[in-house]
Design a protein around this nucleic acid. Sequence first.
DNA 1: TTTTGAGTTGTTCGA
DNA 2: GTCGAACAACTCAAA
Length: 475
Amino acid sequence: MTQIMWFRRDLRLADNPALLAAINSAADGEDVLALYIVGPRTWATMSPVQQHYLVASLASLNESLSGNLVIKYGDAREIIPNLVQSLKASVVHAGELHTPNAIARDLEIARKLSGVGSELKFTGSAYAVAPGRITKDDGSFYKVYTPYYKNWLKHGWRRPAEYPDLNQVWCTSVNSDKLPERAELSAFDHPIAGEAAALKRWERFKQTALADYADNRNRPDLDGTSMLSAALRFGEIHPRTLLADLEDSSGHEVFRKEIAWREFYADILFNRPDTDTGYYNRAYQAMEYDTGEKAQERFTAWVTGTTGYPLVDAGMRQLRTTGWMHNRVRMVVASFLIKDLHLEWTLGAEHFAQWLTDFDVASNSHGWQWTAGCGTDASPYYRVFNPIGQAIRFDPHGDYVRKFIPELRHIPGPAVHEPWLVADGLAHGYPEPIVDHASERLEALSRLEKLPKGKVQSAHNPRENDQKRLIQSFE
DNA sequence: TTTTGAGTTGTTCGA
DNA sequence: GTCGAACAACTCAAA
């Protein structure tokens, strides 16, 4: 008999309750299969940076498991039941996932397993407080961040789980599949994947940047953020591990709130699964967007970082070359796509999904919807980012822009943010602005005013009962 | 049921 | 250059 540990978004050994459950459940004579499954459709839509990061993270996990990680390539709906039958596995252990597609898939697998006398058992999740657990007195979920945060704090979380005993007998009778070839990476630096690298980065962030996080987190020109987003997305480190180290000072508090934002958006998506790609506030479906050839050209300029707005272009190029973009810049490029180019936020969300190594459907979709105005925030309609104002404020010396835009490196200081005002500023091929921000801002405001006023329409959620049933008691 | 205060991240304009 | 007001109306949470 075999216990199966199915790694998904928890590519680590430390503080991994599902792994602990698998090892502790293995009775005398039972081994444990450490398994990861790469889905062909997922793989095909991943950017080169995402593919390389995943492969590196799996290699790191495999090393921690002394080479006993088995990687399969295919549909988990087939692979899991087949392995259960061939190994006569009694239980498949996993950390619970809370996004709509994962819930549907896990439910299907759970049904298949129960049909053959086995079980898909969830222990733990990717969150300090699992989605669905924080509710108001009437049982409904919070739609505003601040009261959610207060209750999230009050709810609290467990201490990190103990380290597993690796003197476990691992199942070695299953062979790994070979993954398809990967596309080549750009020459830029990329984050180092793996649990050890994540812990090291956290230690370094704590010592160098956490104290000033409240001030510096908005500065893309500084090394002021944790750079742990990809590690959190792949579960190389658990938010509990971070929270356990935080104190009461200002920088620590702001960082704690960022962790809570991640959990808030996961909770919103869990309760409104239609918002993975759909509008949270459906009144905005009536928004007027540009279409046609000109819109297509503008979208291409946005994607390739050739809009003529240096901060926007630096961010878009950082995304494609490193697989990451600073949070402040994400808001600026999002605002630019939606309010300056008048294109639908879903286009931007899809592009981010393809290129961000830290892509997380809840944070991505709701981050975009926040900017678009259709998200949970009661965003004032007049909130339109000025791409030049933001650049001068948050990249005050122009260092960030020059790093990612070689055509502008000859312009010193903050003048780089308005190269068309500098003699020879556009001499190295950098384009003129493709739109005029001042007039596009007014255009965006006028389109927003035309939207019908109305209550946020909550879609019926046909999977609600299934989701409630899947909530385990760990968090 | 009604009421009250609050709601991540902004910009512009005029004094 | 700095600073406060204005930019809508609405939903949400809690009393």
